[in-house]
Nucleic acid binder design. Structure first.
Lengths: 348, 348
DNA sequence: GCGGCAAAGGCAAACGAATGCACGACGAAT
DNA sequence: ATTCGTCGTGCATTCGTTTGCCTTTGCCGC
């Protein structure tokens, strides 16, 4: 209905309405409209009201591209992720978007595929003049990151950092978490240990392993056996088989993430016909939602994602306002979620 | 290093470089630079080369906001999702981004929280002059969607549609899928049926149920018992208990998504101490990655997400180029993944 | 030798908002 | 009554591209 064939004035409400249109109706200048929408103090109460009601009537919405051209801000944060299927990142992403929306900013997604060049991603980041960069995965090389940083772009790494130390990051305190896990397993009378690792040289992985090893050594235990599980379900499932076929079977296996831990669980039960935690204890990392499902009930180190995301967004927004702030490196403690995959009895 | 205190010419490479700077160095006008970057035929080979090498040297990148102001295109697609933790959407989202990047477009995320107003989301969509809208979840009211459509904005619904029929959509063929599931269960000698539903009035849910019921009726079976499971793990787990406590226990339960099916599985095994598929068959929908894990091995209807996403992006991009195209409604068939949660023997 | 045409590229006007500067009006201080 | 502030506005420029419309140049055919 109302498809009356013509085109004089009453275009579709809100179609190409500009601040000028609003200005005309409200009987003010375009500048004043602009100021009203920027919440400037320099507009009187009544004028503002008049402007807003005109805007409403016309369905006017600020054109962010025009504004951005003027202010050199896009309101966009590029969130870089790899092509992982780990649902952990979905949880994080949703939290990030939620926090950013509260700051009137928005997520522009930038998934970079496994082996591919990140050049195009970097280019896009520049072309869109994004206000900041949040890196969730390891796919972006530190060279690329440095490039952005030198460009004056605030960058925050999530759950990862680079050695140089001159880029902000927030992460779970992986070293301490690894240490706590070692201690916890030791306290529950485990004495032979193993570790299923993700990507060997991700800082996440290295730190978790290091804390684990350190503490084991301090406790006088032999170092853990280590197998690679590639951060995937199938990887964990295969790795655990290799581990359990060794002469000296481990009594406890720490997996660098939950997905591998769940793979390990299945490997033990299905492939090896053994039981958890009677034959071996398994502990994961992340606390994804599946970890608490009753078929699984994985004991794991929870990452406090809400706090981590809040920190990350805070660091980012601070640096958008004041680009010269020093890089900040924030660690949030993990939280051990004791469920049923670690044997708790105190008798050996 | 090279933090030499000054500011004459050699700013940070690529900082505020414009097409004018490139033009000056290449000895051409800014228009020509613009045309070169737009791949216009009107620039000679050599000029183009000169421009590109100047651009490279300066680290020039087109400013998309300025371009957008001129062309009225942002290159942004708003992807609307709800606050679901279902990892299915993570898989979809990654595929969407991948396809869109191939078309030189980008995802702007718009999660809208459960009960909250979508007004602010709609406003953002207008402010950023996004080129299109891809709606993944049910959170956006059809009123809001119509509003966008009238605005001339291409909209595609994913796995959902509205009655009016005047907005494009791509979905799994839920009715046929429901029918196939009924037939499959009938063929495997099940005779008493149940359904665990998600959100009662989502089109997804209704269609799956309808196909299921239709076919059962056609086969002369009584209609299924129905319980609500809210599309969540816990919901599925509770629902299955209610179902299995009925006098006439169902022999087969179709769950409207995998997450609920997995919840149901656990409910049966853990809460009720029964076995699947010996005591009851369970079938899910989606084929999320966990469904194939060996601790689960859920029989389920796979949604062919890659094809669906390709269709959605195609419909969207077509309509961005030609806004007056009729809405298109495309259905992709599901694919039954037979695993171990449905009893297959042909004896009753 | 001249008209005509095409190719290559320049000019300048959009696009829509932000903002420094100037100006008028009004109140208070002198 | 005069001067000085302050508040509320308007004017005009700016942000970096795109693009319609002109020019210039060279070349061809007659």
């Amino acid at each position: 209905m109302s498809d009356a064939a013509n085109s004089s004035q009453p275009k579709v409400k809100g179609a190409g309405i500009t601040a000028w249109d609003v200005a005309r109706i409200a009987g003010v200048s375009q500048s004043t409209v602009s100021r009203a929408f920027a919440n400037s103090q320099l507009v009187s109460r009544e004028t503002r009201d008049r402007i807003f009601s005109a805007a409403e009537q016309l369905g006017y919405q600020v054109n962010i591209m025009a504004r951005g051209l003027s202010t050199q801000k896009s309101g966009l944060i590029a969130v870089v992720t790899g092509s992982t299927r780990n649902p952990f990142y979905w949880d994080v992403l949703r939290l990030v978007d939620e926090r950013l929306q509260a700051e009137d900013m928005h997520v522009m997604l930038m998934t970079v595929k496994e082996g591919e060049s990140t050049d195009s991603a970097i280019r896009k980041v520049h072309q869109y003049r994004v206000d900041g960069l949040l890196v969730l995965s390891a796919e972006l090389s530190s060279k690329a990151i440095d490039e952005c940083r030198e460009f004056g772009l605030p960058v925050v790494l999530f759950n990862r950092y680079v050695e140089s130390g001159n880029v902000s990051a927030v992460a779970c305190d992986n070293v301490v978490a690894g240490r706590d896990i070692a201690q916890f397993l030791y306290n529950t009378n485990h004495r032979r240990f193993a570790f299923i690792s993700g990507l060997e040289d991700s800082s996440t992985n290295k730190d978790r392993l290091q804390g684990y090893c350190d503490q084991l050594q301090r406790l006088g235990c032999p170092p853990p056996l280590v197998e690679g599980g590639d951060f995937t379900y199938e990887g964990g499932r295969q790795a655990v088989k290799r581990l359990m076929l060794q002469a000296e079977r481990p009594e406890a296996i720490f997996c660098a993430n939950d997905i591998m831990a769940i793979g390990a669980l299945d490997g033990i039960k299905v492939d090896l016909g053994m039981r958890v935690p009677e034959d071996v204890s398994i502990i994961g990392f992340d606390d994804i939602s599946m970890a608490s499902w009753s078929g699984i009930e994985l004991t794991t180190m929870r990452q406090q994602t809400t706090r981590m995301v809040e920190s990350a967004v805070e660091i980012l927004t601070q640096r958008i306002d004041a680009p010269d702030l020093k890089p900040e490196f924030r660690l949030e403690p993990g939280k051990l979620m004791i469920r049923r995959t670690v044997r708790l009895d105190r008798q050996a």
